[in-house]
């Protein structure tokens, strides 16, 4: 995944069964963001792979004050890259569950 300066990782083991998965996002390189992130804590949240989109979560993070509006695209892209990886792995490791 392209280095956006925002890191997204699994916050729990993924067994491919649940449609929602816990993720953790943090800013690795604040210089890559247009706005100043609120604090550089790791933000953990649950993401529903079937019903939600990375843009939903990114917008909610902006509205919750974690990021500046001008960084919504970077945040959404970082989540999208990780979600794509999770789905790619799920299709290979647990194709029957899909």
């Amino acid at each position: 995944a392209e280095d956006t300066g925002v890191r997204v990782e699994l916050a729990e083991e993924d067994h491919g069964r649940k449609s929602s998965i816990a993720l953790r996002l943090w800013v690795e390189d604040p210089k890559k963001l247009k706005g100043k992130p609120k604090d550089n804590g790791a933000i953990e949240f649950t993401f529903d792979l079937e019903k939600e989109t990375p843009d939903d979560v990114a917008q909610e993070m902006i509205e919750s004050g974690f990021f500046h509006e001008s960084d919504v695209k970077i945040v959404a892209k970082s989540i999208r890259d990780r979600v794509a990886l999770i789905q790619w792995r799920r299709e290979r490791i647990w194709p029957i569950v899909q």
Partner: peptide, 27 residues
């Protein structure tokens, strides 16, 4: 370690915890 929690109006819960030093890139 200190955890803070923000619940968005749509109901999603965001839990903020310190990033382990090892994960923060030296800028």
């Amino acid at each position: 370690n200190s955890l803070t929690q923000v619940v968005h109006s749509a109901g999603r819960r965001f839990i903020v915890s310190p990033v382990p030093e090892s994960r923060l890139r030296e800028s």
